[in-house]
Simulated assay, not measured.
Amino acid sequence: MIKVVSPSRLHLTLIDLNAELGRVDGGAGITLESPGLELSATEADTIEVFGDSLLAVRMRKAAEALLPEGKGIRLHINDSLPDHVGLGSGTQAALSAAAAVNKIYGLGKSVRELAVAVGRGGTSGIGVAAFENGGFILDGGHKFNDKRAFSPSAASHVPPGPVLFRRDFPDWPIVLAIPNTKGVHDAEEVDIFKKFCPIPLSEVQELSHVILMQMLPALVEEDLESFGKAINHFQIVGFKKREVELQPKPVLDIMEYMRDNGASGSGISSFGPVVYGIVGSVGEGKKLQQEAQRMLDESLGGKVLLTKAKNRGADLIGGPD
């Protein structure tokens, strides 16, 4: 039996949904220590998946794409991730199942090869890189001639973009509010891309400037204040601005509260509704966690966690029986 423990991730922003320079997408993200997805796997005659029904469908499809002819696998989802909230559950589910098949049957495929096989990373490469190596990730998107459209990962069929920059993330506590509601997904997500893209070039240039000359130097110098300012700037420019505008008021209230009460930066992950705040100490984090939990309890419901970055990829433990 093998066990696969894969991380969730924060998707901080997509970079270029204008494509005037010939590339599209690109993004920045942070791999998280928790919550995570855990499954155990053994060889079987058919495909069997036990546990979370939504993720089970994705795992079954991923296993089908990798399994040698006539072979099967038994997957038990021991710990699940909430679906369609902005934590990247779809990519982690598909890659976890694929990695289990890869390990059990000795296929020898890389994480990127697995991602291509199961059709993940067609817009953002952050989830794939999080599974592979963890940490803070900046990816370079795709050639627009290859992709030929502005579209989300679920509707894209190109390989993950190249990782331009990967670095261990500092030990800054991260407050993670997970409301009991869903973000935009499936057909609605495709429609949002069609509605808002291409993003004005001036906004893409502004965002690129913030990433190159504020966020990345702040990360290297471990300057939390400047890193937080970059996070805050993301929420008011580019495609992220449109994602933020789609959020229900309680989500926006929590993001604003975090920013005004100790978080150096706060934002929405992907299409939300997950809200994150990055703070300087565990004490500050616990205070924000408590208040954000109260705000959720009085509105949408949900759970607030205190976590940190995970500076390694998925863990594969054990081996074939």
Rank of each mutant, 00 (worst) to 15 (best):
L252P: 00
R259G: 03
D139W: 10
G22P: 04
S299K: 09
V5L: 08
K195I: 11
S269V: 07
G22K: 12
D146L: 15
A292W: 03
E188T: 15
G134L: 03
I47H: 05
F227W: 08
S151A: 15
V244S: 02
H84K: 13
F144V: 05
Q293G: 12
V251S: 07
H185E: 01
E256D: 04
F136M: 04
K143A: 12
F150R: 08
L37F: 15
V111Q: 01
L176P: 01
A56C: 10
Q247V: 11
E132D: 13
R9Q: 00
A177V: 13
K287N: 04
R60H: 13
H209Y: 13
K143W: 13
L10P: 01
A28E: 02
S80T: 15
G272F: 02
V237H: 08
L207A: 04
S124F: 06
A230P: 11
N311Y: 02
A65V: 05
N78T: 02
V118P: 00
F234Y: 10
G26V: 08
F239W: 00
S202V: 08
G72I: 10
T31R: 13
G134F: 05
D168N: 12
L39I: 14
A230C: 06
P200A: 07
E38Y: 04
G108I: 15
S151M: 14
L17V: 06
H185T: 15
L95Y: 03
R23A: 03
L207F: 04
L14T: 03
A218S: 13
K195R: 15
D297M: 04
V49M: 05
F165K: 05
L12H: 01
K310M: 12
E221G: 10
G51M: 05
S226K: 15
V304W: 01
A117V: 13
D79M: 14
V204S: 04
